[in-house]
Each structure stands twice: as C-alpha cells, then as structure tokens.
C-alpha cells in the first residue's frame, strides 16, 4: 500500500474532524438526519484513513469483533429490558438522557466493529499474500 507524505500529514488533521462529526451525528441522530449507523460508518472511514498513515499496527490490533459484540449486546438490551417492565419491545424512556442514545451508541459500536473486522481481514490477507 502506498503511503505518501501527503496522505500521512493530512490524516492527522482530518481524522479528528471526522470523529467529531461522527459524534455530532450520533448525538443529533434522534431528531435529525444521522444516527448510530452513519456515525459508525464514519468511524470506520476514519480508521481506514489511519490504516494508510502510521497507525496501521494500532488499527490492526483493535478488538473489532469484541466491539461489535458489545454493540449488539447493548442494542439488544435496550430492546429487551423494557419487556421486563411490562412495556413493548424497544420502548424508550426520555429523561435527561434518552435511552435512544444508548441504542444508537450500540448500533454505532456494532457497525464500527464489523467494519473494522472486515478491513482487518482484507489487510491481513494482503499482508500474508505479499510476504
């Protein structure tokens, strides 16, 4: 994979911006366009950029599947817990922080984890094939 100086330098500036925008989408997603899924995809995009820069080893070592599992578990919990309180599946509570945010964070983690796992698999294959 070619890693030019331009890519490496811009990555350092661009990645934080992408992450912040992802957080913005995540938090605003309840009432405006956005949400956990898009935020998760943006997160994966940022991490792919990091892969092209000097942080390949860090990205490759991320516990992607664990992140995905945790995300799905969180999401399923927000759905199932209301059932024990006699409410419908996926009923949300809106207090200071809405439980939809928890749901969205779960979705975000799941998408992010799955995306990274895919990227890791491809890059891992390439490294094996190249050596």
């Amino acid at each position: 994979m070619s890693e030019t100086t331009i890519v490496r330098t811009t990555t350092v500036f661009v990645v934080p911006i992408i992450f912040v925008f992802a957080m913005h989408l995540l938090v605003h997603g309840h009432n405006a366009p956005g949400g956990g899924f898009v935020a998760g995809l943006l997160g994966v995009a940022a991490l792919v950029l990091l892969l092209f820069a000097d942080f390949r080893a860090n990205v490759m070592q991320m516990p992607a599947v664990a992140l995905c599992c945790a995300g799905v578990a969180l999401t399923v919990c927000t759905g199932v817990v209301p059932i024990f309180f006699g409410k419908s599946f996926l009923t949300h509570v809106h207090g200071i922080v809405s439980t939809t945010l928890v749901f969205d964070i779960g979705v975000c983690a799941a998408v992010c984890g799955a995306g990274i796992a895919v990227v890791q698999a491809f890059v891992g294959d390439e490294e094996q094939g190249g050596s």
């Binding site: 599947v65 995905c68 599992c69 799905v72 578990a73 399923v76 059932i83 006699g86 419908s88 599946f89």
Partner: peptide, 25 residues
C-alpha cells in the same frame, strides 16, 4: 403484555447468534 411473545422468535436467534460470536474460538 402477552403480545410480547411475538417478538421472541426474532430476538432469541439474535441473542443466540451473539453468544455464538462471543464463543467462536
């Protein structure tokens, strides 16, 4: 809420799949 029964055929496989993913080693 007896109607909650309806979602279980969808939730149970998801939870089982999640557990299978965790213990895939």
């Amino acid at each position: 809420m007896a109607s909650v029964l309806v979602v279980f055929p969808m939730i149970v496989p998801l939870v089982a799949a999640l557990c299978a993913l965790v213990w895939r080693a």
